[in-house]
Structure formats: C-alpha cells, structure tokens
Design a protein around this nucleic acid. Structure first.
Length: 443
RNA sequence: GGCGCGUUCGUCUAGUGGUUAGGACACAGCCCUCUCAAGGCUGGUGCACGGGUUCGACUCCCGUACGCGCUGCCA
C-alpha cells in the first residue's frame, strides 16, 4: 500500500519488555499495518556496561507474544541492517566525519560534542501539535555530547543516524522524548537530511499517577505471560490507553483497530494502567475464545502444574465447561485438577458446610442409587434424575447438588454440576460418590 | 530553578459554544440461579481553580494550582 511509510521500535535491552515500551511498539505496529508500511525493530545497545544478547531476547519474546511482528530487524533481516547498534559503528564514524567536516563538532574533555546552531526549533508533532523550542541559550540547552571519551556513542546521535539510514518516515515514541526532539532536528539539519514526522504518545503511569518503573506490578510484559493473560486481551487493553475507537467499544478486534488507527486520534494526556480493567477484558477474551484456542493456551499451565492428561477428548470437554468461569489461564489447573486425578483434595470448609447436617449423607446415597439407573448419561438425564429425586425427598435441588459437587470435586465452587458430571462419566462419578459415602460412614 | 506537555466520574474514555455531560472497569443493591462467575436491572460520584470573550462556556483565551517529562559523557 505505502512502502514509504517506515516506523521503528527502538528499545534498549534492559532484560525485559516494559509495558510502556510494548504500547509504543504497538502504536508503531498499528500505524505501519494501517498504512501498509514497514515496522522495523532496532536494538539500541550502545551502552557497553549493559548486557545485550539475553536482554534483547526478552524483548523479542514479549513482542512475539503480543503478536507484534516486525518486518525488519534482528532475526527478520532487511536491507538496512545490521539492526543492533553495537554493530553499526562504521556508519556512525562516517556520519561523525561528515559533521566534523562541516565544523559542527568540538572536543570537550575527551568527549565529542555537537555545536548547536542556537536557534528556535519548531517541532510539528502529529499528536502534540506545533511546539516552539528556544535553543538560543547555551546555559539552559548545552551542546549535546554525541560520543564518550571511550568511543561509545550517545543515544541522541545514533538514534538520529539510524533513523536517517533506515529511512524512517515517522518517529512514534514516548512523550519523554518530546523535549529531546528539537536537538535531534538540529542534527538532521546539520547532516542535510530530511526530518521525519514525529508523534509523541502519552506515557503509561501507575494507578496512582506515579511513573511506572520496572519494580511496579504489571510493568513487565512477562508478568502477563506468566499470570495467564491472553495476549490478545493485553494488546486490546493497550490499544485503549491513549487511543479509542470513539464508539464505546471495549473489546475490539485487532484488525478493526488497524483499520481505524490514526495518530491524530491519540490523546495527549498520560494514562494510568488499570489492572482491574485489563483483568476484566481478559475474562471477556477467555469466555469468548474458541475451545481449541483455550486448550492451546492452557497447555503450558497444566504442564507446569504437573497435570497429566492422556485423553485429549476428555481434556477438551473438561476445559470447555470451565472456560467461561476462568479469568486467568493460570487459574485453570486448580479449576480442573479433580477431573484428572482421584487424588484431588477436599476443601475442609466445603465438606463441613455441606456434610455438617446428617441428611446430606442419606441424600448422597439416594442420589447415587438414582444415578446408577441412568442409561443415557447426559446433562438432561442427570438433571431430570436429580430434580425428580429432590421432589421425591421433599428437599431443594441445592440439597442434592451441593453434596454431589463436593463429592466429585472436593470443592464448593465449580462449573455447572450437570455438565461436570456428564464430562466425568457415570463410572467415575459413582465411584467418587461411593468413596465419599464410605468416608462419611467411617466417621 | 528553566523549558515543554497535560488536566471530563476513583481509573480508561466519548462529547458539544446551548447535552438530563454518554460508555466501560471498579464499587453498592436487586433479579436470575446448584456454587462461583456470567448476564439483566438500578444507584452514586466528574468537566482542577480564578479571570476574561460571549446572550450563553465543560467546550475559546489568559493566569494559577497540580501532575508528568526534559534539563546526563542514561535511553
């Protein structure tokens, strides 16, 4: 559609992907996809004191998890590589030479600085509008350093060089860079390069309005991966932070976001990350996703919990009925363990509450006998059998449901009892009833 | 301190020079119900403050306050 549109996400490898960085990457990605342009990933690892390899890995994982595929960059290749700044020193040397030849560079205590032209610079930002910066005073806007005495490069310089070299058309980044932008523009001009369009997006803050740092809950994308969020839910939530479809939709398909996304519609105010709402949206996604996807997303969590499931059909049936109940994928093991083992635990409080009264045991025995007569072990048959018995005994449906639930699951909460029983199968249910009855009788 | 950006329910947001200021999350209550959820219904809380401009401002302008960012040989 528009190959001239080229954007990039340029994180420095810190060992994890920050949720704010993820949102920046997302907006870049949305812009690229909306226009049919290219989304470039570039790793800004100029700071030699930090590790790069493993740290960059966390960024790749996070982006991949969120489905933000990059067209060019590490592992994807591209015509403008290498995409790690640590491998681009020759390029920087070349541009440094150009600046030196133009008389823009001077040395200061071994470091190299760029001499500011000392003018007003107007930043025409797609989100923030036209902003006039007065750079005439060296006292308030010192000449920026572009290379340290040890030869390593400073962000402002290499960032601009790479954006020129990689033909970046739109620089979409956090608002924390807005005040740096006029300095960057001075560099573009000194090099005779065309400045890209800029779009500075608002920052993500904590619920209390404070800046989100790596120690804050929810600051790392890995947290969401580990806690069992569906990537599409987190991505959807992120879309709604600073951007809106403007029609009250909350759960919105990513293709629809791509279609509607425009930089001009981005808010200018910082947004607080509301984990409650992200959690809610996650529940919506889980409830509405296909059983197949749910099974797929759940697998690693079941494995981690050492739940062995040889029968795929049985697994699928069990997961299908807990899907609407679960809010986090990491909750699934506890919600389903009793389906797959006879060694499930009994919640003492649930047992006490339900079997505290003596009638409960008699009712469970009566229910066992009724269930034994069922030929077609289906939800309908189970339900009508139970309800008929309740009527006969003159008790409430719940008086039979609760004992049965505790007997087969050890818990007082769970999915619809009838569906649970159907999935477990007649044989297993009767066996569990018998065991419960025996235990109660032994007391 | 200087410079920049921002300010609609607690939070994310919609919105218009004249609206009962809308939605969502969260919260409370009710309904439904085999539990827990879900779902349905109801409820409360909001245009930061002060000046202008205007017949009229939440909406436009100025100021103040507050918040955030930048002001590094961090990115």
């Amino acid at each position: 559609m528009n190959p001239e549109i080229r954007v990039r996400f340029a994180p420095s490898p810190t060992g994890y992907l920050h949720i704010g960085g993820a949102r920046t990457a997302l907006f870049n990605w949305l812009f690229a996809r909306h226009h049919g342009g290219k989304f470039v990933l570039r790793i800004e690892d100029t700071d030699r004191t930090r590790n790069t390899e493993e740290a960059a890995e966390a960024i790749y994982e996070g982006l991949q998890w969120l489905g933000l595929d990059w067209d060019e960059g590490p592992r994807a290749g591209g015509d403008f590589g290498p995409y790690l700044q640590s491998q681009r020193t020759d390029i920087y040397e070349r541009y440094l030479k150009q600046l030196q030849d133009g008389g823009h560079i001077f040395e200061d205590a071994g470091a190299l600085r760029f001499r500011s032209p000392r003018e007003h610079v107007v930043v025409d930002d797609l989100v923030c509008g036209k902003i006039d910066f007065d750079l005439t005073n060296p006292g308030t806007h010192p000449d920026m350093t572009i290379r340290r005495p040890d030869g390593s490069w400073i962000f402002h310089f290499v960032n601009v060089i790479d954006d020129i070299e990689m033909k970046i058309s739109h620089v979409i980044r956090g608002e924390d860079h807005l005040s740096n932008t006029p300095k960057h523009i001075e560099l573009y001009r000194a090099l005779g390069a065309t400045t890209p369009h800029f779009a500075h997006i608002p920052l993500i803050l904590n619920r209390d309005g404070s800046k989100m740092s790596k120690r804050d809950e929810g600051a790392r994308v890995t947290t969401y991966m580990e806690q069992g969020y569906a990537a599409e839910a987190v991505r959807n939530y992120l879309c709604l932070l600073g951007w809106s479809p403007k029609d009250n939709r909350e759960k919105i398909d990513i293709d629809e976001v791509i279609r509607l996304f425009e930089l001009e519609k981005i808010n200018r105010r910082n947004a607080a990350f509301d984990l409650d709402k992200c959690f809610w949206l996650n529940g919506q996604y889980i409830a509405q996703m296909s059983v197949d996807r749910f099974v797929e997303l759940t697998r690693p969590f079941l494995e981690k919990a050492n739940i062995d499931v040889p029968d795929k059909g049985y697994l699928r049936a069990a997961l299908a009925i807990v899907k609407e109940k679960v809010k986090l994928l990491s909750d699934v093991p506890e919600w389903t363990r009793y389906f797959f083992t006879e060694q499930y635990e009994f919640d003492p409080a649930a047992v006490e509450k339900v079997f505290g009264k003596p009638e409960a045991t008699e009712r469970l025995i009566a229910l066992r006998d009724e269930f034994a007569k069922i030929e077609n072990w289906t939800v309908e048959e189970i339900e009508s059998s139970l309800k008929t018995l309740a009527q006969k005994l003159g008790c409430k449906t719940g008086d039979l449901v609760h004992p049965a639930r505790v007997a087969v699951s050890g818990r007082s909460v769970g999915p619809s009892l009838y569906h649970m029983l159907e999935v477990m199968g007649k044989e297993r249910v009767l066996a569990r009833f018998d065991r419960m009855i025996a235990q109660l009788g032994a007391k």
